[in-house]
Design a protein around this nucleic acid. Structure first.
Lengths: 341, 341
DNA sequence: TGTTTGCGGGTAAACGTTTTCGGCAAGTGA
DNA sequence: TCACTTGCCGAAAACGTTTACCCGCAAACA
């Protein structure tokens, strides 16, 4: 159907191999013939066939993306969709397409790794999934180049936000506004959650705050309903916190809901902060105070790290992407008025 | 590296072609040998190579997705990301992967159609882009199977929401609550926008409402800042509308902002409705009144339509997906109290 | 018994590339 | 003049499949 390299060769009066070498920048082709080939390429509108190229054992110029399979929110994840979008852009710029790796292939199930081999992806970007799953580990331990996002393995380059710095900045900020009773609705245990929780504890200690156990509650990510229920509990505590940190921006909507239902005004009665800095959340008033994660940059860095590996270029082992405290309106100076107890 | 069909053949003491035929359900292979091959497949953990298969001239089992290239929000689009997620799921279930079609391939630009040919996709799903672009038309007019979302071409199967019904339901609902001055902040001209605008006008006429020109204002989709400015104008009109319809949910955040700045309470002073029914927006109070578009179903139907074409199965020309009116709290009975003029 | 039929399976070409190897001509040094 | 390098290029194998075609064999038929 399309015009092949053979057509090109005939058109130029060259052999197929000569054309191929001209196209791929081999040194044993004269500049004159190279130019002839190039103009022929334009004339005939030639484009190489990706499958043939991949088959020959070279690369497929295809990157696998392993990204919260079934059950989860997948592509609609408010944070990772941004990471992915920019991963895709950077990859495209380098000549790579991306394909999603799942384990649902037609009728039967298929291992992630098998799926990778089936499509012969040159490398895999892994994010937002259960890294303790055996199938997932199989990929990280394979010979395939891998980059992970928000999770660190030995020998596997990774991209992470400066979660520790983010929590620290948030805590310092709240403290500076007079908050001494700070609760943290943290995510379920994971690499990221654990780092943040540790940073929270350390910050509290550093600032001389004592955090009662009932101020530390786990909550699923991006699950406002879950968040609502949990914040309900926090707000009905005899000694209620003056400031609540949520594990992500999206959950603050649930927290707000709980506040409304409890007759609590944010930020007058209780301050509220999120994590992520989703642009979609910055349009509501009062504007959310949160930690901005540079999702676009995370995506870009991940693509760079992965492609550098594939092309055997020297690469950093790991990248920490800086975060930024967004001082919104939901964390206010702690009420100086009548003490609530 | 991987185990090939040749390894399978040797392991079974068969020829390569016999194995191939056994795998692909040819009739001239005895049931016994087929079983032998199948068990060998499991033993050796064989998986066919997609590129070799595609190269042979068969299908690539890959679907192209043409989806708001650069500049736009891409994967982070709140509505289409859901469509895409479910498109992907349905496709995977049928054994197809998806790859994004862009025109940025490595260094140079590339036509959408060329990109499709390069990857030899079996079909293309097109959504959320400028269908008047010559490059885009080139794809719809090619020999490739195509399905379009939210845009109808002759001979090209498409999936659309019942936009007309949605607007009608919204208008009837607002009317039933006493609203007579209804403004519509519609999207920039496009197939969908035009259908909705037409439905708005027809509904207004049917209900005996006169809509002054300044009640019909265009606004970019998913651009709260733009929406804010426009609603500002609406709210400062001498004869202000009692109900404002926005072209999408996301823009209602901008509208709310404008309301706050104008000292207008929603829904007490002015009612507000969106379009899309994004779950992310349903967590805010007051809960948004809007028209739910069944994005998951749209994605699924699109995948089915496309795959049916590819596999030469009879297929509907086009699918209209029903919408549902979500009666939230932002459209309230029109104030009976002191008339504002 | 000789000829068809159908079943089961093998041979080889083809898909469009890349890459190794070798060859030929011209230039180079002695 | 000879051997040797260098510059350019072609031949052919290879990647892992699919598929058109052929072949042998047993059963069935005349």
């Amino acid at each position: 159907m399309g015009v092949t390299i053979r057509d090109l060769a005939e058109h130029c009066g060259l052999s197929v191999s000569a054309v191929s070498k001209a196209l791929n920048g081999y040194s044993d082709i004269s500049e004159a013939t190279r130019q002839a080939v190039m103009t022929a390429v334009r004339e005939l509108d030639y484009h190489p066939n990706a499958h043939a190229r991949a088959l020959k054992g070279g690369r497929s110029y295809n990157l696998g993306v392993l990204f919260s399979d079934d059950s989860q929110s997948g592509l609609t994840h408010p944070f990772f969709s941004t990471v992915l979008e920019h991963f895709k852009r950077e990859a495209e710029q380098e000549g790579y397409d991306i394909t999603f790796i799942g384990h649902r292939m037609g009728n039967g199930r298929v291992t992630y790794l098998d799926h990778c081999r089936y499509r012969e992806v040159d490398g895999v970007c892994m994010a937002c999934l259960d890294f303790d799953d055996a199938e997932v580990r199989e990929v990280t331990e394979s010979e395939l180049p891998v980059v992970t996002i928000d999770r660190r393995f030995q020998d596997v380059p990774s991209v992470m936000s400066d979660n520790e710095g983010g929590i620290r900045a948030l805590m310092d900020y709240a403290y500076s506004l007079g908050h001494r009773r700070i609760a943290y609705v943290h995510g379920p245990s994971s690499a990221v959650s654990d780092v943040r929780l540790k940073a929270f504890r350390e910050s509290a200690e550093r600032l001389g705050l004592t955090v009662p156990a009932e101020y530390l509650l786990p909550c699923r990510y991006t699950d406002p309903e879950n968040a609502r229920a949990i914040v309900q509990v926090l707000l009905s505590l005899p000694q209620r916190p003056t400031c609540i940190l949520m594990c992500d921006d999206y959950n603050t909507t649930g927290a707000k809901q709980a506040a409304v239902e409890s007759g609590v005004n944010i930020p007058r009665d209780v301050s509220l902060a999120g994590f992520d800095g989703l642009s979609q959340m910055q349009n509501f008033s009062p504007r959310l105070t949160t930690v901005y994660q540079d999702a676009p940059r995370m995506g870009r860095e991940a693509a760079r790290l992965l492609i550098a590996q594939i092309e055997n270029r020297p690469t950093a082992e790991s990248v920490i992407v800086p975060v930024r405290l967004l001082r919104g309106e939901t964390v206010a100076p702690v009420a100086q008025g009548p003490k609530t107890i």
